[in-house]
Amino acid sequence: MKKELIRIEHVTKDFRDSNRRRVRAVDDLSLSIYEGETFGLVGESGCGKSTTGNLLVRLLKANQGKIFYKGTEISGISEREFAKYRREIQMVFQDPYGSINPRKKIGWLLEEPLKIHRKDLSAEERRRMAERMLEVVGLDKSFGRRYPKALSGGQRQRVSIALALILNPSFVVADEPVSALDVSIQAQILNLLASLKKEFSLTLLFISHDLNVVSYLSDRIGIMYLGNLVEVGRVELIERGAAHPYTRALFSASERESGRGPDEPVLTGDVPSPSDPPAGCPFHTRCPYCQEVCRREKPVLREIEEGWSAACHFPFSVELP
């Protein structure tokens, strides 16, 4: 059956803002990602989706909670112990301009992780592997002799993907990998990710604000709002009719974007500041179906049916109170 690859248990991450106030980016988040699946994490800016991704690859450390990889806890271990997991857990970043060293040739960049993690390889073997990796992501091997600045945005993102895959990882976090690209190029990269996922038998955490992209690529999705997971489940269940009003607002906004008709009321107001989150349900200030209990009590994730949960006191509300 489904095997858990990643388990996140009650993870909380706080930052301090410029006024030294506590900003809770991720709030008591629990989540499992299964082997071989693509899990899509969606939400608007500041919802904590990227922080969650960074916690998983250990670019950040959680204040509370535990993270497990193949059943072993990796959140409490030392940096040295974590090193052996680094080649298994890799990341593709949003901005291919900011995440690639501009002063090194592509070939050098691709060989660098091999020098650290694959000491068994000769220089010749490393070079051949880097060249093969370029071909895997659809680039000519001559790209190895070029600098990042000579590449277009789409080509750079192919290099970022090659960099993430060269150590043959089992888990890849892709944080908004296509958001900086034009639609026609975006489709090229999405196809590439889908085919590489099969070829390398990857488990993928795909983070994006774009629900169209996420629901196209994912098997299961999680929707985040103000650091909380408000709904999680299999895509085909959620897209048929989401339980959480925020998920429905997101779907309706992106359907409007893709040209289909809107059926949900447009949300009013702004997302509250994570340094001053509302009491009760984090979404109640913008929820068209808000009731008394929503202002008071924070709803927990409850199963709706197998493989689908939502954190809402009144799931599937359609009538305005």
Partner: peptide, 22 residues
């Protein structure tokens, strides 16, 4: 080409049709 390249839930499991080149 633009219309075919836009991802959507309805296209899940099928490859998108990107416009080749840049």
């Amino acid at each position: 080409g633009l219309a075919a390249a836009i991802p959507a839930a309805g296209k899940r499991g099928r490859a998108l049709e990107p416009i080749p080149g840049t």
